[in-house]
């Protein structure tokens, strides 16, 4: 069955169509959430919460955007809401532990935890999410604005400031100057 047919059956309440849709999109969703949260456990938890929300709101999906984009939009907003609620010291420490776990996951697969990833992890959610959506997933500023419920200009500004912060952390300017000498 094609995605459109699956969505149409899911809207009628068919749980098997929902299951196929979710199974097809689950890896993409978890990997996206892992990038924005830098926390593998939270990513899985949020992916499940996203699916639950999707079952509730499927009648609102109008098919103008891709189903994956719609899932990304729900997941992002769930994360932002949760992040706002849990912005306390204890949670921050848990975030540090989660980051160490993610590094360990990568290193156990012989994948290097690059300086760029370390710099990305240091960014606030406000900058990290639009930066990833723009430069890794290729969304336009208008689309990012729609996902995050902000103006396109604000999205662009956050991406710009995020890139500046990462570049500063990577010391790209200094390296370029040294090479120029």
């Amino acid at each position: 069955m094609e995605e459109k047919e699956l969505i149409s059956s899911a809207k009628k309440g068919d749980h098997r169509s929902f299951a196929v849709l979710f199974r097809n999109h689950y890896p993409l969703l978890v990997k996206y959430l892992m990038k924005i949260t830098m926390n593998p456990d939270l990513a899985e938890e949020l992916a499940q919460a996203t699916m639950a929300k999707c079952v509730e709101k499927i009648h609102l999906f109008n098919g103008k955007s891709k189903f994956s984009s719609w899932l990304i939009s729900i997941a992002t907003n769930l994360y932002i809401d949760q992040y706002r609620k849990k912005k306390r010291e204890r949670e921050w420490n848990e975030g540090e532990a989660a980051l160490r776990k993610l590094k360990w996951h990568m290193e156990s697969r012989n994948e290097e935890w690059t300086d760029a990833m370390a710099a990305l992890a240091k960014l606030t959610e406000e900058m990290r999410i639009p930066l990833i959506l723009k430069h890794y997933y290729g969304y336009s500023y208008d689309e990012i604005g729609e996902i995050l419920k902000i103006a396109a200009g604000t999205a662009k500004s956050r991406v710009h400031h995020g890139l500046l912060a990462v570049r500063k952390e990577l010391k790209v300017d200094e390296k370029s100057r040294e090479l120029a000498k």
Partner: peptide, 15 residues
């Protein structure tokens, strides 16, 4: 900077 970020995120995607 974008290319460094892209490389890092691709590695994360390979998990």
């Amino acid at each position: 900077t974008i290319s460094a970020l892209d490389d890092g995120l691709k590695k994360l995607d390979s998990l």
